[in-house]
Computed example of a mutant assay.
Amino acid sequence: MSTSSRKLQSEINRILFVKNLSYNVTSEELYDLFGKFGSIRQIRLGNAQNTRGTAFVVYDDIQDAKMACDKLSGFNFQNRYLVVLYHQPDKVAQTTSQGQGATNTEHKSMADIASTPRRQI
């Protein structure tokens, strides 16, 4: 396969943003589901009032993240249809400047995940 045919769209990255999760979902259940597509570096489950039902899933490999996004977007998990998107820091920064969305601190922490050492649970 040539290098040009392996290029991915610019929004594709290793960090997935998952919405429409059950408020009762555990990180272990998300590891079980998303781990079927590859090695996971980290999962951050939203627990604040405005982030419940969401999570960030960070893969070690971008191809694994792409496959998970392709296969799990719209997947029925715990009687809810998942919305799986690629994390887009530029859009987070844009909504932050308009007074909505994540704070700059949250934006930086997600951008720094790629350099976070891998943890075992």
Rank of each mutant, 00 (worst) to 15 (best):
R14E: 04
D61L: 05
F37E: 02
H87G: 04
L82E: 09
I113G: 02
N47A: 03
V58S: 05
Q42M: 09
D32R: 07
D60N: 15
S5T: 06
A48M: 14
L72T: 05
F75M: 00
N24K: 09
T105H: 12
Q100N: 11
Y23V: 11
Q9D: 13
R119C: 04
I43G: 02
A111T: 10
I12Y: 07
S4V: 10
D90I: 05
F37I: 01
T105Y: 03
Y86A: 01
S39P: 05
Q63T: 08
L72G: 07
V83Y: 09
T54Q: 15
A68K: 02
Y81L: 06
I40H: 01
N79M: 09
R44F: 06
K36D: 13
T3S: 12
T26I: 02
S2N: 14
Y86T: 01
S2T: 12
F34H: 02
I62H: 05
K36A: 14
D32V: 08
D70G: 09
N104T: 00
T96K: 11
Q42G: 03
N20L: 05
R119I: 05
L85W: 04
V58M: 06
V84C: 11
N13D: 09
D61R: 12
S4R: 11
Q9Y: 11
D61F: 08
F34I: 00
S109N: 08
Q120F: 07
T96A: 13
Q120Y: 06
K36V: 06
R6K: 14
P89E: 11
Q94N: 03
G99M: 08
S22P: 06
F77T: 09
A114E: 14
Q98P: 01
R44V: 03
I121Q: 11
A102M: 12
K71E: 15
G46I: 02
N104D: 04
P89G: 04
A111Y: 00
R118P: 00
N47Y: 02
E28I: 03
R80E: 12
D60C: 14
G35Q: 05
Q88Y: 10
T3R: 13
F37A: 05
I113Q: 08
A55E: 01
G35M: 11
K36L: 13
S97H: 08
T105S: 10
Q88N: 15
R52V: 15
E29L: 01
P89K: 10
G53K: 01
R44T: 07
Q49G: 02
N13C: 15
A114Q: 13
G46E: 02
N13E: 13
Q63P: 03
K108V: 00
T103Q: 14
F17Y: 15
I62R: 04
I40M: 06
V18R: 01
I113S: 03
L21G: 07
A111D: 13
I12W: 03
R52C: 12
Q98E: 09
A68N: 04
A48H: 14
T116Q: 08
F17A: 00
S2K: 12
F77D: 14
F75A: 12
V83Q: 14
N47E: 03
F17K: 08
R6N: 15
E106V: 09
Q42A: 13
Q63R: 07
Y59I: 01
G46P: 07
N20R: 14
G53W: 01
G101E: 09
N79V: 04
